[in-house]
Amino acid sequence: MKRVAYSVETKYKVVEMKVAGFTTKEIMNALNIRNKTQVDTWWRWYRNGESYRFSQHVGKQYTYGKGPKELSEVEQLKLENKRKDVELEIFKKVQGIGKEVVPTVIIDLVDQLKDKYSIKLILEVLNISKSTFYRWKNKPLKKDTVTQKIIELCEANHYTYGYRKITALVNQCYTSPINHKRVQRIMQKYHLNCRVRPKKTTRLGKPYYKTDNLLQRQFKASCPMEVLTTDITYLPFGHSMLYLSSIMDIYNGEIVAYKIGDKQDQSLVNDTLNQIQIPEGCILHSDQGSVYTSYSYYQLCEEKGIIRSMSRKGTPADNAPIESFHSSLKSETFYLNKKLNSSNHIIIDIVEKYIKNYNNNRIQQKLGYLSPVKYRELAA
């Protein structure tokens, strides 16, 4: 078959279309190029900084220093700039990595940069031979210490933490900070991502003693026991239905009172409220459930000097903090491990242990990766 000689303009047009995101097949059809390998070769030359080869004759594509013509000053300058770009990008990537197994770092760097630069050019800058690189890549590598630590932390927290919280915990163990994007990649690679919470359905309540929404989704407080929020959630995991009534302090997200009962009645809510000493003038936010709009609840709040606030009808987002807590409780225990479903006594024990761990140990991003109790103690 007779070789086809393509013009320099055609070769640069191929590069231009590649950069624009066209596929090889689309480029071949548009420019009437017969061979796919030809397109790949021109693209490789361009990525290697060898675009000077576009003007060489068919069958005479010499590399630098091996052909009859040396590179022009312009082409040499382009090649040097390309190499400096790679060096600069590699320097940015390796900052903060710290001392680790060299093969792991190299493979990770090449994977990040290979879509932008050729593997050959990256390895030249790193002064690593292709044979060594592919030997590292094809040989199973032992997990580095950071990866092992991430796996341990995910297991210890029952895979309920996302990459941000895991990053905060990892950085407590190392002097050199570990980037959150690296933690995210490792968690994705080893399938360590936390469970996605199921969407909540709206629960409508019939208002009786209705009050205004004083919070307006501004869930902030300047000191403990200034703004509280409360709600009831179902616990359908035992031999019979159970209900959890909780009160949360908006200041640090701490559960300051809770009660578990087998009936969603007025005593469940009132008994929860009577567990704690609430300073006069404290705002207590709830939804418009019948237990919160009842005369009994209204009277109890009046006696304690509590200022009541209520969500709009059928709008759980107006009470987001306590809704989120109940969702986390179920997602990180019962939904995560359905084998936990057992007797009511065991269900109660699981909930009580979770709340204790939630208050004392479970870190929160908004609290600077501290637990609610630790945040309150440090603030005091």
Rank of each mutant, 00 (worst) to 15 (best):
R83C: 08
E87D: 12
L77N: 12
H57N: 04
L71T: 07
K66Q: 13
G98K: 09
L77A: 14
R53E: 07
E70T: 10
H57E: 11
F54V: 00
G67S: 06
E73R: 12
K84F: 07
E70Q: 12
D85K: 03
T63G: 14
I97N: 05
E87T: 05
Q76T: 09
S55K: 05
R44G: 13
Q76P: 01
E50A: 05
V94A: 04
R53A: 05
Y46S: 03
T63M: 10
E87I: 07
G59C: 01
R83K: 11
L79Y: 08
D85Y: 03
R47I: 08
H57V: 01
E50H: 12
W43M: 03
I90L: 15
L77C: 10
R44S: 12
K69E: 14
I90M: 12
G96L: 06
E80W: 00
E80R: 03
Y46H: 12
W43P: 00
K82A: 13
F54W: 13
G98F: 12
V94I: 15
Q56P: 01
S72C: 11
K78N: 10
E89P: 06
V86H: 04
V86W: 08
R53T: 01
Y52F: 10
P68A: 09
K93E: 13
G59Y: 02
L79S: 11
E75V: 13
G96K: 03
R47Y: 10
E70H: 10
G65H: 05
W43V: 02
E89M: 05
K92I: 04
K60M: 11
N81P: 01
L71P: 04
S51E: 14
E87G: 08
V58F: 02
V94L: 12
I97K: 07
T63C: 13
Q76I: 08
Y64M: 11
G98I: 07
G98C: 12
F54R: 00
K78M: 08
E73P: 15
Q95L: 14
G65F: 06
G59W: 02
E87A: 15
V74Q: 15
R47F: 10
R44F: 10
S51P: 01
Q95Y: 05
V58K: 01
G96Y: 02
Y52V: 05
K92G: 06
Q95I: 03
Y62L: 11
R47M: 10
E73W: 12
R83T: 05
E50F: 01
K66E: 15
E75T: 13
I97P: 01
L71S: 06
I97F: 04
K92Q: 13
K66W: 04
K84W: 06
I90G: 09
Y52I: 00
N81W: 03
E70N: 14
V74W: 09
Y46A: 01
T63Q: 11
K60C: 11
K66M: 13
E87Q: 14
Q76L: 15
G59R: 00
S72G: 15
E50W: 09
D85V: 02
Q61G: 09
G65N: 08
I97G: 06
E80N: 03
E87N: 10
W43N: 09
E80Y: 01
Q76Y: 15
L79F: 09
E80A: 11
G67A: 08
L79M: 06
E75M: 15
L79Q: 11
P68L: 08
Q95A: 15
